[in-house]
């Protein structure tokens, strides 16, 4: 841009942005630093004292050992962890979050990709009607489903099972998934698909061998979307997984910790960071795909 830029203007622009970025980052920094400080220090002094004199800072991994249930033989840690062991150990919750999230991401993508292909490349009665239905369902709040689905789950013994929550996340994620993947799959070159049909390939073959590989970017962007959504979800887990610690996911346990250890900030901060590390990693590693997904589907119910 060949604009008359004054020094003052540039300073204001950079200064404002740095100020906003600092405001946005400092709360997370406080969480991160506190999670490495001994419990008695966290409750006695502000986390910023560490920054004031880093040389005297007393940093430790104890909080993480306690929240992940890895206290070992250390009597001091065992003593600290004794208060409500059941509620603290997040190791199980990490596994549960993974067990919920991976299928609840893959299943809707698979089903939605099939449906998107059907809507884009197959002719059948009711095609337009059903697709309009998908568009209408894009913004339906999932609160509408909680009571009837919970009743069904109680009847089918699906309440508190992983299968139940996978299906729930699949149902709630499908409209957006179909919509996004339809946009991608219907934009594939017609010639390419038709030459495959002329060679005698069936729809199923064309879909699995040609369409799926070609729509990888769209699949990836929705996958990140859904992964973050499911991993970070609280409401669906509360309603369909219930209160049994055997199956509870990280967000539920974190909520529980806030109730029982509302003031034990060294444990809360460590627990919160445990719940954030995987989504943050996925997010920064695949940010490009995530942004593409955001741009493609700005309206989600």
């Amino acid at each position: 841009m060949s604009v008359r830029r004054t020094w003052a203007g540039t300073v204001v622009v950079y200064g404002t942005l740095m100020l906003i970025a600092a405001l946005w980052t400092i709360p997370t920094l406080g969480l991160l630093i506190s999670s490495f400080r001994p419990g008695d220090e966290v409750t006695r002094t502000g986390w910023w004292t560490v920054l004031k004199n880093p040389a005297q800072a007393n940093l430790t991994l104890d909080n993480y050992r306690i929240v992940l249930g890895m206290v070992g033989d250390d009597p001091r840690l065992q003593e600290l962890a004794k208060r409500g062991q059941e509620n603290i150990n997040l190791g199980t919750a990490v596994l549960n979050s993974l067990t919920v999230t991976v299928p609840a991401t893959v299943i809707p993508i698979l089903i939605a990709a099939f449906a998107a292909y059907g809507f884009a490349w197959l002719r059948f009665p009711g095609r337009r009607f059903f697709f309009i239905g998908v568009v209408a369902l894009l913004v339906v709040p999932l609160q509408i489903a909680l009571i009837p689905i919970l009743k069904d789950y109680v009847r089918l013994n699906l309440s508190g099972t992983f299968l139940g929550i996978w299906l729930a996340h699949t149902g709630f994620g499908l409209p957006l998934a179909i919509y996004l993947l339809y946009n991608a799959i219907s934009a594939l070159p017609r010639d390419l698909l038709e030459s495959a049909f002329i060679d005698g390939a069936s729809h199923f073959t064309v879909f699995t061998r040609l369409v799926l590989p070609l729509s990888m970017p769209a699949l990836a962007s929705f996958a990140i979307f859904q992964f973050l959504w499911v991993w970070n979800d609280l409401l669906v887990a509360l309603v369909f997984l219930g209160a049994s610690p055997e199956v509870q996911v990280l967000t539920q346990r974190l909520l529980g910790m806030l109730g029982t250890f509302g003031t034990e900030w060294h444990l809360l901060t460590a627990g919160a960071f445990v719940s954030m590390i995987l989504p943050l990693t996925v997010f920064f590693a695949l940010q490009r795909y995530f942004v593409r997904g955001l741009l493609a589907g700005s309206i989600k119910g």
């Binding site: 946005w24 973050l228 970070n232 719940s275 954030m276 997010f283």
Partner: peptide
């Protein structure tokens, strides 16, 4: 970055 963080977190 906060977009990756759960509302609980």
């Amino acid at each position: 970055m906060p977009m990756a963080i759960s509302m609980v977190g």
